[in-house]
Design a protein around this nucleic acid. Structure first.
Lengths: 334, 334
DNA sequence: CCGCTAGGTACGCTTTCTTCA
DNA sequence: GTGAAGAAAGCGTACCTAGCG
């Protein structure tokens, strides 16, 4: 920094002013400083700047590595954090690296707030963490006043799915359940409430899960059902589960959507590929990420309204109709 | 830190010694300090520790968010960095956040070395970066003495695939090419050299790519080929491409492996699912990650042998035979 | 020699102050 | 009033030295 100051013929304080982008330097000087920095290949040391200032302006994020939808969320988080003048520090969760460990490193980095993507921590753990610094849980509903929540209206999402299938004439509609995964309870509730809305509908809940593997297993169970009692439509916990289901159903000779209509959840990139063309309930990654950053930024930047109990932002899902669903035909099963 | 010292009845220097895990404190004191820290919920500030010491003991990693195989690599990197007493700082690449930007933030964090996963930077950029600090490119071959490379032997991988198919009696074997992606050139070379090994083999190169989308497109082109000239086997750029190909081929009425055998590359988790059961060339994520960390650690920890030209580590791939390949039958096409 | 204290400097910045043109 | 210099304190550690029992 001193070298840059010397080269630009200014004081070190000026260099600091220029790099922080605050007022106090003329455009000419600003350009001179930046030129000197470029020539010396200098860039401010983020460790030192965070130490020096009272604020670190850093948000921590835990995410599951290799999780497609988390990738979409990260993209949105990067964009909105940048716009709000925050930096992101990432901490990955892997089969051998727990979410707790990931959070530990974020705390040691002294980030000011934490975004948890699809957290699997207990409410007690979340509450303890939220007592320490602002926390927002994305995709996972959480109780407690201290913790911000940003999620899709899962219940409404499943209602959309069921309504869509009912509108196509289906009455026996199965749910591929998500078990104890984040959001699964809400989706089950949405399914049940939509199904009970009309007495003509028959509920069938099959164990599903997060991945194609569980969708495939569910499809095998589905095929085992006699043609008479077999549902004519299925709404899955998520897209990957739906895709696994479709694969195995087709391998077993069922036509999709001819014999069974399938609806997913998330709208991951793959769902939109022409050869997949999965009808699904879209979660809006862009808005989820924006809301997560806003939740933390509002609290950190001292918005007195937000300072109290953090809001629970629930974003409306959207049904995306593609080619995995079709009207019920006379012969429901082959 | 001062509070912890006071609570444990020791000096600040002792607290530092305990948390750095260096010699100079008795076990009893060590326990007392840790207990005090636990009670006060104290943990050392990594920003400050890195500032204070001459070494940051930090490795930067760029990766593509949502990329399944990068997730596997990250897991391995976390494990081995930890073992080598380095911390990892992650910087994600997204459609709207370039690899250059990702590297910038890593440099500003003052990490001591950089791991690039599937870099798409030019050789000139890589060379410039490598002149600044130790760099290792994983999955992407790179020329230049300054830059470490850790990759799978892509050429050998495609030879394995072709040999496997030839051993099953196939002679018309197509390649779904990866274009300009990292490693594609090497795989193409492996394909060509293996095919030319035997005059009986007929080369067919179709444009493929990284995702199911491109595999699906290749399958459409494949189906268009007359049954006579249509290859009986396909080796794809990677698993996702292979999976897209299989999906569309089956939708078009071709049997896999009855009418066409398919080999992938990578061995992503999905390839091993029973309903997918893709024969593929496995890249060993665990060893790739280990080698990447070792490459940097050797150079950083002053191993005089490694200090010169960093090694190019090439890891042997392994053929994993599942159910997407079968012997050529009398009627090669339906 | 070990375990420890006490006090210092260093790290690379931020931030605030006063001063000057 | 605005742009800038220069000084000084501080951030939370690491690390060193001197010294004590």
């Amino acid at each position: 920094m001193e070298h840059v100051a010397a080269r630009a013929g200014v004081s070190r304080a000026l260099v600091s002013i220029v790099f922080r982008g605050v007022a106090g330097a003329s455009d000419a000087t600003r350009e001179r400083v930046l030129a000197a920095a470029r020539e010396l290949d200098y860039r401010p040391d983020t460790r030192a700047s965070r130490l020096g200032s009272s604020r670190t302006r850093t948000l921590g994020v835990t995410f599951s590595v290799g999780h497609a939808f988390h990738g979409d969320l990260l993209e949105s988080l990067y964009t909105h954090a940048d716009a709000a003048a925050y930096e992101l520090v990432l901490s990955g969760v892997t089969p051998s690296r727990s979410e707790e460990a990931a959070v530990e490193t974020l705390l040691a980095e002294r980030c000011e707030g934490i975004v948890l993507l699809g957290s699997s921590q207990s409410t007690a753990q979340l509450t303890r963490l939220a007592a320490r610094l602002p926390v927002v849980s994305v995709l996972r509903p959480a109780t407690g006043d201290e913790i911000g929540v940003v999620r899709t209206d899962d219940t409404a999402g499943l209602r959309l799915a069921v309504e869509h299938l009912r509108g196509l004439g289906h009455t026996r509609i199965a749910l591929l359940d998500g078990g104890r995964t984040a959001g699964a309870t809400e989706r089950r509730r949405g399914y049940r409430s939509a199904m009970r809305h009309s007495p003509a509908l028959t509920e069938v809940v099959l164990p599903g899960g997060l991945t194609e593997l569980e969708g495939a297993a569910a499809a095998r169970a589905f095929v085992e059902l006699g043609a008479d009692e077999r549902p004519t439509a299925v709404t899955a916990f998520n897209d990957r589960c739906a895709i696994g289901f479709v694969d195995v159903a087709r391998q077993a000779g069922l036509r999709v959507p001819g014999d069974v209509s399938v609806v997913g959840f998330d709208d991951i990139t793959e769902a939109g590929y022409p050869h997949v063309a999965l009808t699904t309930v879209r979660q809006d990654a862009a808005r989820l990420g924006a809301a997560a950053v806003r939740s933390l930024a509002d609290r950190l930047d001292g918005d007195p309204v937000a300072a109290g109990t953090p809001a629970h932002t629930v974003i409306a899902p959207e049904l995306v109709v593609r080619s995995s669903t079709a009207p019920l035909t006379g012969r429901a099963s082959s």
